[in-house]
Simulated assay, not measured.
Amino acid sequence: MKAEGANDFDVDNDTAITLVGIMRRAEHHIRSNSTVMAALDDINSGYLEKFSIGSDTLRGEIGVAGDATLSRALERLELRLSTGQSNEPWGWDTTTPCSWLLSSCCWATTTLRRCS
């Protein structure tokens, strides 16, 4: 598992195999997306620019990886459980954490329930 912590993202070949590398690759593509770039430009020029003090310009960045470490990658994963009898997974919904969460390579549990 320790090897998954290596950043093997190759910008020139657009490849990655490790979890951290895959996160860096995703971050690269998200930041290069035209919609994300347009939204960021609107935020920076239409809103944050007003909060600049003197020559210090306040600017924002949009992304997902932040500190792309193995622990961070594992924290963002979710485990969905299913009985295999239907297409309704057990796991995570957008309002209440449920199922199992990976956090720093340790299992943490919360209430398991069918998510709607």
Score class of each variant (00 low, 15 high):
residue 82 S to Q: 03
residue 26 A to D: 12
residue 59 R to A: 10
residue 93 D to W: 01
residue 103 S to E: 08
residue 90 W to I: 15
residue 34 S to C: 02
residue 87 N to M: 12
residue 54 G to F: 06
residue 21 G to R: 05
residue 107 W to P: 10
residue 88 E to W: 01
residue 104 S to C: 03
residue 33 N to V: 02
residue 97 P to N: 15
residue 60 G to T: 02
residue 66 G to S: 13
residue 82 S to G: 05
residue 40 L to D: 00
residue 114 R to N: 11
residue 45 S to F: 01
residue 100 W to H: 08
residue 59 R to E: 11
residue 26 A to H: 05
residue 104 S to L: 00
residue 8 D to P: 03
residue 30 I to G: 01
residue 1 M to L: 12
residue 57 T to V: 13
residue 21 G to H: 01
residue 49 E to V: 07
residue 41 D to F: 12
residue 16 A to M: 06
residue 74 L to R: 09
residue 98 C to Y: 02
residue 95 T to M: 10
residue 37 M to G: 03
residue 27 E to Q: 14
residue 49 E to I: 07
residue 52 S to T: 12
residue 63 G to D: 03
residue 56 D to L: 10
residue 5 G to D: 03
residue 63 G to C: 02
residue 48 L to N: 14
residue 104 S to Y: 07
residue 30 I to D: 00
residue 13 N to P: 00
residue 99 S to Q: 07
residue 53 I to C: 06
residue 28 H to L: 03
residue 64 V to N: 07
residue 18 T to D: 03
residue 94 T to M: 10
residue 58 L to H: 07
residue 22 I to H: 04
residue 96 T to K: 06
residue 87 N to Y: 10
residue 41 D to L: 11
residue 83 T to K: 09
residue 14 D to K: 06
residue 70 L to T: 07
residue 10 D to H: 01
residue 49 E to Q: 14
residue 32 S to R: 15
residue 113 R to I: 12
residue 93 D to Y: 04
residue 77 L to I: 11
residue 1 M to N: 08
residue 20 V to C: 02
